[in-house]
Write a protein that binds this DNA or RNA. Sequence first.
DNA 1: CTGAAAGCGCTTACAG
DNA 2: CTGAAAGCGCTTACAG
Lengths: 342, 342
Amino acid sequence: MAGPPRLTDATHPGEPGGRATIIDVATAAGVSRQTVTRAMNGMTGISAATKERVLAVAEQLRYRPSRFGRGLVTGGDHQLGLVVNDLRNPYTPQLAASVFQLAAEQGWNVMLADVDLASDPDRMVAALGAQTDVVIGYFGDRRERWNDLLGTVPMVELDPSSDPPTAAVWIDPSDGIEVLADHLVATGVRHPVVLDNSSPEHTSVRGVLMTDALRRRGYLPDVVHAPHGTAECGAEETVRILGRKRRLDAILAFNDVMALGVLQACRRAGVDVPGDVRVVGVDGLPLGALVSPQLTTLAVDLDEVAREALDLALGMLAGELPRNGPTVQRTVRHRLLLRESA
Amino acid sequence: MAGPPRLTDATHPGEPGGRATIIDVATAAGVSRQTVTRAMNGMTGISAATKERVLAVAEQLRYRPSRFGRGLVTGGDHQLGLVVNDLRNPYTPQLAASVFQLAAEQGWNVMLADVDLASDPDRMVAALGAQTDVVIGYFGDRRERWNDLLGTVPMVELDPSSDPPTAAVWIDPSDGIEVLADHLVATGVRHPVVLDNSSPEHTSVRGVLMTDALRRRGYLPDVVHAPHGTAECGAEETVRILGRKRRLDAILAFNDVMALGVLQACRRAGVDVPGDVRVVGVDGLPLGALVSPQLTTLAVDLDEVAREALDLALGMLAGELPRNGPTVQRTVRHRLLLRESA
DNA sequence: CTGAAAGCGCTTACAG
DNA sequence: CTGAAAGCGCTTACAG
């Protein structure tokens, strides 16, 4: 295939210039533009015969009204852009579902951009900005660049890793981590390992919080750095950790998906969970309840995240909120969801 | 909250009529419209001083260029609409990811509409049609109505349940089911149960195919009708099935998610899989490899589904393909993916 | 470096 | 039932 067919490539017999317009249809049918409008939009004030004739001509010319021409005069719908990282990570659709549902309730359409799946993320974000009224999402370390790309389109960052230049919803695990650490103490854990999704040079914020909470309780936790936040990676690292034969009775994973990999690896190695090793994830995915033992996790209420983000977005759009600063920052906290694995 | 804030509600001081336009900015800054355009779009041919002044005025007026005005003259991007049923079902994001990735490679943006999560599915589909060049997706029994709603926007139906009025990609499990049935025979299964997602009055196509394939091999399969295709529902029905104390050594679930529920229920009931009961799903979700035993399934290649659907969509748009009929029908087939559960 | 003119494709009053 | 006129908000040549 030689690239995407440009709309203007859709040449038709008798329409060498490209896509047919309302004028082309009107001319070919021998009527005025507004008669074409009436026919196309099923409006009243047009005879059945005329309507039929116009529709036939429109079909023959492959006429489709331009959404821009129409939007310019009708005003168009409200459009929300959502930037996510990888739809194949179960966390992402869960978040997206919350945003969709809430947005739909308010009459907003959602355009999704998966920047992990995109061949050209920058181009994709720019295109998103051109089609939407406001953009919400995960921007990672590209947020400054994307902020420029989006121009005047307000943006709301989800789970920023550091103080953001725009509106943001923080997702803060620190409270949950404290409760979790207390729980580990109470259940007699002695040798916890933090399985971070990070590089050895740069522990994640979440990893740091976990490690600190454990240290403050007298633990000397090992930190293992896994390059990807996937189940496969979680399983691989677990095999490695178990192979070291160092003492170990708890694994705190960066997220649920990794923890699922940990559970799988333990199962295969004949390590009992939670008997020999306790396992904890982060996110609170429903998925964690489907495995055995069911995954204990630090859960975040994604409906709440979506609500805060939408609230910020709509507030900025309405001019009630500024586009940055402390008044456009919200925080949603994790809470410990005890199931079976810890 | 009193309904969605209309964009035109975004009144500003000095802009009682609503949202600021390029004219407002030009007037306020004492320049012409195209000077505003130059400033907003970072074009050359404007002095730094003018640019700065214009930008300041624009910000003060909260000016954002209309995507319609701009699109009308620039042509805008290609926009694909994707209609799905429930993002919280793991199948959906998997499919969406395939469509996104392929669409992005071809320079298309994707607008997602989750009609399960929508408060008003019809309105949502209509809005999708107004914003996109072509729509792909699952339409169920609403396809005729939505076809009308979409007007001239071409549509491609995924996995139609009966002969569709539009372009379509069939997802056909029949070959896979034959292979599966042979496999069950070979492994000595005697009393298989089909766990369908359907009502007692109306067995699903998939359920019928499974039942038939088993009958032709001399089985007298039980068919159980579960109202929802979820893990919870799969688990509940399994408890019920096991409770009947009728002989049973295989469960063929409607999809992977239900099968996961079956596995969970078996685990809790102390039923060994595959020793006592063999379990099979449909879809081939990666998720099935995370549980123990790993789920045997009829897998479908969603990249292939996406490829065929996009191909059809782009062909229709380019005028190379008609909008319905046999030339715009494709078929993708399941294949048996043997893992551990059967 | 800046602006007057034209036009993108459509719909909404309004007049007949 | 049908059409002439105006205008939605923007950008692209073109002229200065």
